[in-house]
Design a protein around this nucleic acid. Structure first.
Lengths: 236, 236
DNA sequence: CGTCAGCTTGATTACTTTCAATTGTTGTGG
DNA sequence: CCACAACAATTGAAAGTAATCAAGCTGACG
């Protein structure tokens, strides 16, 4: 058995009890833990790369991760976020295709790696697990389609507002209840909203001037989330 | 039992043998056929509407369908296509949410409607069926993400080229091996590429002048698909 | 205290939308 | 069969938006 980091428990005792693996019995979770590996990823490090092949499933124990793809010209586009308890790479696992995106730690992360064979045999045996995966895929697909329509039809100002909103929905606020809980570079924000770094900067400082957000150092403060939502003309 | 159109067979004898239901045994297909309804939809008619609730699954017997969403300002965005043997509305069914998109017949269609209870009990019993659904979702998600990145990063000319390419991949050519197999209005093409009707028209006629495509009446002829593919990814 | 990466600002250019006007096409009733 | 209405396609000019290119600024860190 591979050695994991000592501070990371077995699946059966995991405090996250993942949105997907909650369907498993204790015995099944024990099976999942076999050959489990746990790794530490420093902020900015990649967990897997678009184009590589999968040898199992990743499960985020702590930290925040972004999934991004490279466009033809090498420009990055963030397609999804993931946090504690989320599963990464299940698509590559299930369809035996290479990873469709690159996973990067947005902050220091602990991530577990579950062996392919264990996952597959559990999926075949446990139909609740399949249903959970279907539900997760459904949710991802809905988000992707919303993201798609936002990028296609909205102005940069709306897209930037939408992006901040989306980050908030995924990761929430700090304890003060109004500061976005992740540190993002201007370039990263641009990659989420599908624009250039310069335009992202200009738009953020406009939103700042208009009192929609407050830029305090590198962090973004949202005093009134309704106001921001109006700015994004958000629709769910 | 509801009456279907006489020319539509039972699921067990269906010539399409759907990508998803091929996992079923004959007996299971017979079960699926119970309470099956079949309907004819004229070109332009809607099969279901975004926001409504699902009472079962749709399976396309013949014809072509587009799935689209409405943006904040009422502009339509096509998110996906479907043809013979494809399943519609499985997300709404599985997660008990309203339909996330509106399905519209792009040409005259025959579409079967399968009862919710039959579908759900088969999904729970047959794990191959679940896996097929997972694979279909996986494919849809990948397409949505590709579409997303295209809309976010490409010029209108590239997006229009990409859209024609995508339509070709989904529906193929006519017998002549070079004419796109669907009739689309300029407005529809614009809704796929995420632009305005006028810009779509201008771009199409430019591609025509540049010899990439030929506009013959309402149909689009692609003499050299490689040339079009180059247009879709490379730059002007 | 210098350096380097990330951030910011300005000016210019390119692209796309918008609005408006015209032409073409199709279907329908007299 | 024609006239008309309704809709789809096209074209032009003007306005707006965002990308690009270029140059300075700032703060963290050795």
């Amino acid at each position: 058995m591979k050695e994991g980091h000592s501070q990371i428990p077995l699946c059966a005792e995991c405090t996250n009890d993942s949105k997907i693996f909650c369907a498993l019995s204790l015995a099944e979770k024990a099976q999942l833990s076999q050959n489990k590996g746990s790794n530490f990823y420093k902020k900015g490090q990649n967990i897997f790369y678009q184009g590589n092949y999968s040898h199992g499933l990743y499960c985020i124990y702590s930290g925040k991760v972004k999934l991004s793809k490279l466009g033809e010209d090498g420009k990055e586009q963030v397609v999804r976020f993931a946090g504690s308890g989320d599963i990464l790479g299940y698509r590559a696992l299930l369809s035996n295709e290479p990873y469709q995106a690159t996973a990067t730690a947005m902050e220091d992360c602990y991530v577990c790696h579950l062996a392919k064979e264990n996952c597959m045999s559990l999926i075949e045996k446990n139909s609740d697990l399949s249903l959970n995966i279907i539900k997760q895929l459904t949710k991802d697909l809905r988000n992707a389609e919303l993201h798609l329509i936002n990028l296609a039809q909205k102005t940069v100002r709306e897209r930037i507002s939408e992006s901040i909103l989306h980050i908030h929905e995924t990761f929430g606020f700090e304890e003060d209840g109004k500061t976005i809980n992740v540190s993002l570079s201007r370039a990263e924000i641009a990659d989420i909203a599908g624009t250039t770094t310069e335009t992202a900067i200009r738009t953020l400082s406009q939103l700042n001037q208009d009192g929609i957000i407050q830029l305090v150092g590198k962090s973004i403060v949202v005093p009134d989330i309704q106001k921001l939502a109006k700015e994004a003309s958000a629709f769910t």
